[in-house]
């Protein structure tokens, strides 16, 4: 297993394999996204309480899973990069971040679009909402730290440390925000997880999750290739400057 991973963790092999896989993945994610959009917009029935607005949830919920999952993936890639000194893991961590930040933004935007007709307000300082807003802040800090340090290996160490600290900190933030919220206002009756979800609504949700996951993998691979090329260009420039 390990030799196999070592083999594909080498940037040259990665570039070759990902170059072959990327067009297929791109086509697959476009098709999957089209199917998932069609099912969630036209096939899925209206909710008897939420009406058409329930369709927002088909985008909102999978985005929330991917926003959180993306941050955890960054942390895992950072640990891998730190312990086993794999540059490709650092490249992956950096490549995931903008997509994860976008999904976090989508969660916040679709959430407030849904909240306006359903709760009657764009935003409440609910523990969950606040935690997601802080997650966006964590993403932005992570991206900014990568951009602020010129030397890639140094930037990888610093950003990796931040990701690991952040992932430990997320539960603490969530706990403290819940504590703060429950003391400041009565427990919210507005809950997303009311009755168990009906299969006709679960189907488009899972389809959309699959489509968005494919899309995230595709974008991440493309960004990883871009980053590797960027690093090679940087090395060439440095070499030609030294010569």
């Amino acid at each position: 297993m390990t030799p196999l991973i070592n083999h594909y963790a080498h940037p040259t092999h990665f570039m070759r394999v990902s170059g072959i896989a990327l067009p297929w993945l791109a086509v697959a994610s476009i098709v999957a996204l089209a199917v998932a959009l069609y099912v969630s917009l036209f096939v899925a029935p209206e909710d008897y309480l939420q009406g058409q607005t329930v369709r927002i949830m088909f985008l909102h919920v999978p985005s929330a899973w991917l926003a959180l999952g993306g941050y955890v993936a960054i942390a895992i890639a950072s640990v891998t990069g730190w312990i086993w000194k794999r540059p490709l893991a650092d490249v992956a961590a950096r490549a995931i971040a903008p997509t994860g930040a976008c999904f976090t933004l989508i969660v916040l935007l679709t959430g407030s679009l849904w909240g306006k007709p359903m709760w009657g307000t764009w935003w409440v300082w609910d523990a969950r909402l606040t935690s997601v807003a802080i997650l966006l802040l964590l993403y932005l800090g992570y991206i900014a730290l990568w951009n602020a340090i010129e030397e890639p290996t140094l930037a990888a160490r610093a950003a990796g440390a931040l990701a690991i600290i952040g992932v430990v900190n997320v539960p603490i933030i969530h706990f403290s925000v819940s504590w703060w919220n429950t003391l400041h206002q009565p427990a919210s009756v507005l809950r997303l997880d009311g009755p168990t979800i009906h299969p006709t609504l679960l189907m488009p949700l899972l389809l959309m999750f699959a489509a968005l996951s494919l899309l995230m993998v595709t974008i991440t691979l493309a960004r990883m290739r871009l980053e590797i090329l960027r690093r090679r260009t940087r090395m060439l420039r440095l070499r030609s400057a030294q010569a």
């Binding site: 802080i134 802040l137 964590l138 800090g141 900014a144 931040l162 952040g166 403290s176």
Partner: peptide, 18 residues
């Protein structure tokens, strides 16, 4: 880091919320 002070603020803010 470039503009390190401002960046440190962004990084420490989530940590200092609890």
């Amino acid at each position: 880091a470039r503009r390190g002070g401002l960046l440190a603020l962004l990084l420490v803010l989530p940590l200092s919320m609890p």
